[in-house]
Computed example of a mutant assay.
Amino acid sequence: MATKQLKRKTSDPELPSRFSMVRSFQLADFVTLGNAVCGCLSLMFAMKALLTQNTDFLFSSFWCIPIGVLFDFLDGRVARWRNTSSLLGQELDSLADFCSFGIAPAVLGFACGFQKMLDLVVLTYFVCCGLARLARYNATVAALPTDQNGKVKYFEGTPIPTTLVIVGVLAYGVHHGKFWRFANPMFQHEGPFASFSQAFTPEFVWGGEISILPGYEFHPLVLMYGISGTLMISRRLRIPKP
């Protein structure tokens, strides 16, 4: 009897069917997923660049971020055009932004040479600030002032897509030879990883490095991540929402 009742409950037509979540996606949600795809590809290309010691993959990783910004810009426009919005879309947008504009820029910084222990502390702080900023927005968006159309008037702290500026700085540096020593693995003659160990010495990382204590060095340029993270979590800084 218990078995029959269990079967009857599982076949209840009111239960959600398979793939019901995907069918509930709006057009804007699929655009948001494009942003997430860009973030994932940026991470993979950055890792591929480190493994192959080929800057072509690094530039592919850089390009994924502005394309992600484009998707992030379009999903809101599409939602307003279709007059659709949902809590699922809001959460999806935040998770995609965290991948593309939080984790990916930090990994790109690591790939460009910010690999000292104090560098990692700053990069981790940056990622945590981005995560906290998105969580705060989701938790407080209902209480933020809105215009007559119900649109939020301003952001508290800088929006996380502004990390595109950091990515632009890194791309400029790599393009002008301010980060990586090697350019093509075919010219290596000391083993597959010999030049990799030489690629991020102080003279080949833009701005060099500073020693705080013996064994505790960091690259000054990594501080742009710390500044960006601090601006993101500021509550006094209010940026008008376009």
Rank of each mutant, 00 (worst) to 15 (best):
F73R: 10
N83W: 00
L51N: 11
L58F: 12
V78T: 11
S24P: 03
T52E: 11
L51S: 01
D56H: 10
F30N: 04
F45L: 11
Q26G: 05
F71H: 06
N35T: 03
S61I: 09
N83L: 02
F73V: 01
L58P: 00
I67T: 12
L88E: 02
V37T: 14
M47E: 04
L51K: 10
G34M: 11
F71G: 03
S24C: 03
C38I: 02
K48L: 13
W63L: 14
V31F: 09
R80Y: 06
I67Y: 01
I65N: 08
I67H: 03
G39L: 10
W63A: 14
A49S: 15
W81L: 11
L51T: 02
F45N: 02
S61C: 07
M44E: 06
L70Y: 09
N83D: 13
S61M: 08
F45D: 01
Q53Y: 05
A36E: 02
N83A: 09
L58T: 03
L58V: 07
N54P: 01
I65S: 12
L43A: 06
V69R: 04
L58H: 04
L87R: 12
N83H: 14
D56M: 09
G76L: 02
L51G: 08
N54E: 14
G34E: 03
K48T: 13
W81R: 05
V37K: 04
F25A: 06
K48A: 12
A28E: 08
A36V: 07
F73C: 08
V78A: 02
F30I: 08
